[in-house]
């Protein structure tokens, strides 16, 4: 007890936490206002708004899984090289050589779980009518986040560079070949011609843009790696910030008026 007291009265502790332990009502309010991580929350909230039967906690779980994916993802990047020569071998080594060889398991199952919890969160928001005014725009942000979650999962699917990976991405990205006007097997691609020269070929269509090549190859691996590790996570982080901020600005967790 005495040691705890000494630590809590030290200059270092007090410089980090600008308030005493949240044991009484006043400090429980102060802690919410002065802590960076806690200030996302309001100070007080309607009891029904935090009932698990109402929220299912699915938005929070999705965000937590995003953090798990970020941490395990950064650790995986230490080991993994996105080249045809190394990608598959590095994944093998992650399982067989690396200590605590469940890093990839955590990352992959976390990703699947995140897709599911995103759907469940959206389902709950629909069922409670929480997309209705004034929360319309935040629902739109949520739909974009759902799309980005699926794209994160899709780009990550390629990285192990096994049969499962390249064929799933091949099947998925073949769709882009059929994009109307912009895919070279899509309806109306014949319209984009200049002087008898087709502008949309298998080397310039939507699928080529996605894969960086005519088929799923090294360029695709690099492209998906960058999308997966940098571009999409940054977009998600920005939209998450907006999503959370708007929850507060639009009146907090929804409830009957």
């Amino acid at each position: 007890m005495a040691i705890g007291e000494t630590i809590r009265n030290s200059q270092i502790w007090k410089s980090i936490f600008r308030h005493p332990m949240p044991l009484d009502r006043r400090n429980r309010i102060v802690v919410m206002l002065t802590n960076f991580f806690l200030h996302l929350h309001p100070v007080s909230i309607k009891k029904q708004g935090i009932a698990l039967s109402f929220t299912w906690c699915m938005g929070g779980v999705t965000f937590f899984l995003f953090l798990v994916e970020t941490v395990t993802g950064v650790l995986l990047m230490f080991y993994y090289r996105p080249t045809l020569e190394w990608a598959y071998n590095d994944i093998l080594a992650l399982r067989d050589v690396t200590s605590l060889g469940i890093l990839r398991e955590l990352h992959r199952w976390g990703a699947h779980a995140m897709v599911i919890t995103t759907w469940l969160h959206m389902y709950r928001v629909f069922l409670t009518g929480s997309y209705k005014p004034p929360r319309e725009f935040n629902w739109v942000v949520g739909v974009i986040l759902l799309l980005l979650t699926l794209l994160l999962s899709f780009t990550g699917y390629l990285l192990p560079w096994d049969q499962l990976a390249i064929w799933a991405i091949t099947v998925g990205s073949n769709m882009a070949r059929a994009t109307p006007i912009l895919g070279y097997e899509g309806p109306g691609q014949q319209l984009l011609t200049i002087g008898g020269i087709d502008l949309i070929t298998d080397g310039s269509d939507a699928r080529f843009g996605l894969l960086g090549a005519r088929f799923v190859g090294e360029e695709t691996l690099n492209r998906f790696y960058v999308l997966h590790c940098i571009a999409i996570p940054l977009a998600v982080a920005l939209l998450l910030a907006i999503h959370f901020w708007r929850v507060r600005k639009d009146g907090g967790i929804s409830g009957p008026l």
């Binding site: 429980r28 100070v43 935090i50 109402f54 779980v61």
Partner: peptide, 26 residues
């Protein structure tokens, strides 16, 4: 029913602890 239980509670501890337990569980 959501309207019946609409008394207000403090986020610390009521929500913060729920979140912590959820994180540990997940």
């Amino acid at each position: 029913m959501e309207k019946v239980n609409d008394e207000k509670v403090l986020v610390w501890p009521d929500l913060v602890y729920t979140e912590l337990i959820c994180m540990v569980g997940v």
